[in-house]
Simulated scan of single mutants.
Amino acid sequence: MNTTTFGLDIAKRAFQMYWVETETGEIVNRRFTKQQVIEFLGQRPAGRVALEACGSAHWWARKIVALGHEVVLLHARFIRPFVQNNKTDATDARAIWTAAQQPGMRSVAPKTADQQATLALHRMRSLLVKSRTMQVNQLRGLLYEFGVTLKAGRVAGLAEVRERLHEIEEVVPGTLFDALRDQLQHIERIDGEIRKLERQIVAWQRQEAACQRVATIPGIGPLTATALVATIGDPAAFKSGRELAAYLGLVPRQSGTGGKVRLGGISKRGDSYIRMLLIHGARAVMFKSRSKGAWSEQLSLRRPTNVVAVALANKMARTAWSLLAHDKTYQTDYAAQRAS
């Protein structure tokens, strides 16, 4: 008997499901509540349930797998071309079902609860870092309006503010000085919250063998290792390290016609946060590491710095996939052998 494929359009309260009964050929497009979806799938024989990889999709994937079904998560960009006429829940469910039938359609690996929690910690930390940067920049601007200039850099600038508080108090009106002192305390609280989140992230990294293996790659620290492992999920979801690099937007953008393909800048697809971490890690290797590696040193002789950084980030991502997919440990001078 053929397996039934369901196209499920999820939301907060309204859920639309499209499928074709394999025995009768009947086309069904029904609306459910959240509990009705769970009860319906719990009563059905094992099948394939296709979802759009959107908000709460990974929770639904884990729930549906627990009910005995196979889950296929699809990127919204791959579903949109199959939406016919006006966009509604019913047409979206049918488009998801249609996209899942296409041969070679790429899917997203469902994440575990721990992986989602780790990525949530990263998002919280990223927002706090952004807020701290805004607060420090505002502090610099307000003091500059009263003729007070500070050293470059967040740490050096804040240290100078604390050292010169008595001098600043004489220059700045009292009403503003009290507010500036409160802002300094607020920045300190943000620093404490960031450090607390980083400790939680490092704790997860220490208990995950995959994170420990990836962290041995030069340029990848606890933040990048945990974010990368949590984002990749199941390494089997990618056919190769090149496919992972393309997923992260670290490959050239292609534009071709008439049999001629032109390569541009990087595509910048996928998760910009992971791409930023990898590129910053690559820059750290280029400018901080004592042993940059023969490959990157030779590349830096003939290519611009930014190109080398992105190329090294691409290599780091591909190396990380290889370690995870083949359960290997990192070797400094490892040379891949081509199959004869």
Rank of each mutant, 00 (worst) to 15 (best):
T4I: 14
T5Q: 13
T5L: 15
L8F: 06
D9C: 01
I10H: 02
I10D: 00
K12H: 14
R13K: 14
M17A: 07
M17G: 02
T22G: 00
T22H: 09
T24C: 12
G25V: 02
E26P: 00
I27K: 14
V28S: 15
R30Y: 01
F32L: 10
K34T: 06
K34H: 15
F40K: 11
G42V: 10
G42A: 01
R48K: 12
V49E: 11
S56P: 08
H58G: 04
R62Y: 04
R62M: 09
I64K: 02
A66K: 14
A66V: 06
H75K: 12
A76F: 03
I79H: 04
R80A: 13
R80M: 06
V83P: 01
T91D: 09
I96Y: 10
I96T: 07
T98M: 14
Q102W: 12
M105P: 03
M105Q: 13
D114N: 05
Q115A: 01
T118A: 09
T118L: 08
L119N: 01
L121Q: 04
L121K: 03
R125I: 01
S126H: 06
T133P: 05
Q135W: 07
N137V: 01
L139I: 11
L143Q: 10
Y144F: 15
T149A: 06
K151M: 12
A152V: 10
G153M: 09
V155R: 15
L158E: 10
L158H: 06
A159C: 09
R164Y: 03
E167G: 02
I168T: 03
I168S: 13
V172G: 02
L176K: 00
F177L: 13
Q185D: 15
R189S: 06
E193Q: 14
E198D: 12
E198M: 03
Q200E: 07
Q200S: 08
A203G: 07
Q205K: 09
Q207L: 11
E208I: 13
A209W: 08
A210Y: 03
Q212R: 15
V214W: 01
I217G: 03
I217H: 03
G221I: 09
P222C: 04
T224D: 00
A225P: 00
A230W: 02
A230L: 03
D234E: 07
P235E: 12
A246L: 03
Y247K: 12
G249W: 05
L250F: 11
V251G: 11
P252S: 07
Q254M: 14
S255Q: 13
G256C: 02
T257Q: 12
I266S: 05
G270I: 09
G270K: 05
D271Q: 12
D271Y: 02
I274A: 00
R275V: 07
L277I: 03
G281T: 08
V285P: 06
K292N: 13
K292C: 15
Q298I: 01
S300D: 02
S300V: 00
R302D: 01
R302T: 14
R303D: 04
V308Y: 06
V308M: 11
V310R: 00
A311C: 10
A311P: 02
A311H: 06
A313G: 11
A313F: 05
A313D: 00
N314Q: 08
R318M: 14
A320T: 07
A320G: 08
S322I: 02
L323N: 08
L323F: 09
L324Y: 06
T332W: 05
T332K: 04
A335N: 11
A339L: 15
